[in-house]
Computed example of a mutant assay.
Amino acid sequence: MARLYFDHNATSPLRPAAREAVVAALDAGNASSIHAEGRAARAKIENARSLLARHFGVKPELVVFTSGATEAANTVLRPALVGLACENLLIGGGEHPCVASGHGFAATARVALDGDGRLDFTDLREKLGFSRAPMLALQAANNETGVIQPVAEAAALVHEAGGVVVCDAVQALGRVDCAFAATGADVLFVSSHKIGGPKGVGAAIFSRRAVIPAQAFVRGGGQERGHRGGTENVAGVAGFAAAFQEVLAKGADEMTRLRALRDRIEADVTALAPEAIVFGAGAPRLPNTLAFALPGLAAETLVAALDVEGVAISSGSACSSGKVSASAVLASMGVPPEIARCALRISLGWPNNEQEGVAFPSILARVRQRMRNRA
């Protein structure tokens, strides 16, 4: 059997339609040029922009393409916006490192998570009581545990306090509804390669002009209506659009299939290892994500052993320069360090099938037994 790739929350393999779109656009002209070749490139970008705008329910000019989610986060997490100024930044306890670093706000504060990995509303209300015009950064779904955050409920409280909500919708895109109408957020950002599009492209999406940052993060020749300088990545944007079109066409059926596959793997894992701890089991989760620990078996060792057996899984976020380090997400959930060190993540995607789901538990059982014997 081919290798089992169960790390789609890190990156999902390129969908065939996205690959075709990228190849077709590699020789495209510069989208800022006014000749025919430039206009053809511009059309690819504007078609992609309109596709995203229609899905999220905004005008096309409120969609800004970036080099990915990290740049998008740095773009939107700014104190000075066109229509207001935010004085401090509140950061959900499970946020991705690209969100959690502060971004130039005078004051930042972490909002705790509960034991199931969802935002702690008691802590949120307390911190809002000491905030003026706050910005809350809250992901739609966690990249490590798959736990879906109550963004709409949090947004209602933040808006009462005169604040703004920025939602990292990277893991939610194509898996659960993350449009403005569902989240109540003011700003969203997404990434192409999590849904089977090319790496190196993402988007910041604004609900209205007032919440666009007053100054561009990347300055240059005025591309993206002055919101993001630099020659546009025509091939990347075209591939992103192709992947997203496929997601829109297949999304519901694909997620139903992956939820069933995830649930089967979870049941098999907990049957062969009764000591297994599933993180976020009491909360709504992404249909493709399973985070669990086998106490006593270090994640770093288990990930390496499974890799040798032909299985690619993760110990959490892939955005730490290849390091296996302590999970800030699990720490915020109150998970003891000795359990957090054993945390694994399976994240499924469009190519995964039932045969792979059947094969994985027996491989895990074999590796687990070998590690226990050595111990």
Rank of each mutant, 00 (worst) to 15 (best):
L51S: 04
R54G: 10
L51E: 07
V58G: 09
A85M: 11
L62F: 05
L84I: 03
L89W: 13
R54F: 01
I91F: 08
R78P: 00
E87G: 02
G57L: 08
T70M: 13
A80M: 10
N74D: 14
L62C: 00
N74P: 00
F65A: 07
G68W: 02
N88A: 09
K59M: 05
E46I: 02
L90T: 12
A48P: 00
T70G: 09
F56Q: 00
V63A: 05
P79C: 09
S50L: 15
A73Y: 05
S50F: 12
L77V: 07
L77F: 04
A80P: 02
I91S: 06
V64P: 01
S50Q: 15
L89G: 11
A69Y: 06
A48H: 03
L89E: 11
F56K: 02
L84Y: 13
H55F: 14
F65M: 07
V63Y: 03
R78T: 09
P60H: 07
A85Q: 15
A48Y: 03
N47L: 15
A69W: 01
S50W: 12
L52V: 14
F56L: 01
L90K: 10
R54A: 12
P60R: 09
L77K: 03
A80N: 12
T70E: 13
C86W: 12
E87M: 03
A53K: 02
V64L: 03
H55S: 11
L62Y: 07
N47K: 15
R49W: 12
C86K: 10
H55C: 06
I91H: 10
K59W: 00
L52R: 07
G68T: 00
T75E: 12
A53S: 08
F65I: 06
L62V: 01
K59Q: 12
L51G: 02
A80W: 10
A80S: 14
L77S: 01
C86Q: 13
R49G: 12
E87H: 13
G83C: 08
A85L: 13
R49I: 12
T66A: 05
F56M: 06
A85C: 13
S67A: 10
E46K: 03
G57D: 07
V82Y: 05
N74C: 04
H55G: 00
A53L: 05
V63E: 03
V76I: 14
L51Q: 10
L81D: 01
N74V: 00
V64H: 00
H55Q: 12
P60C: 07
A69R: 03
V76A: 14
G68E: 01
H55E: 14
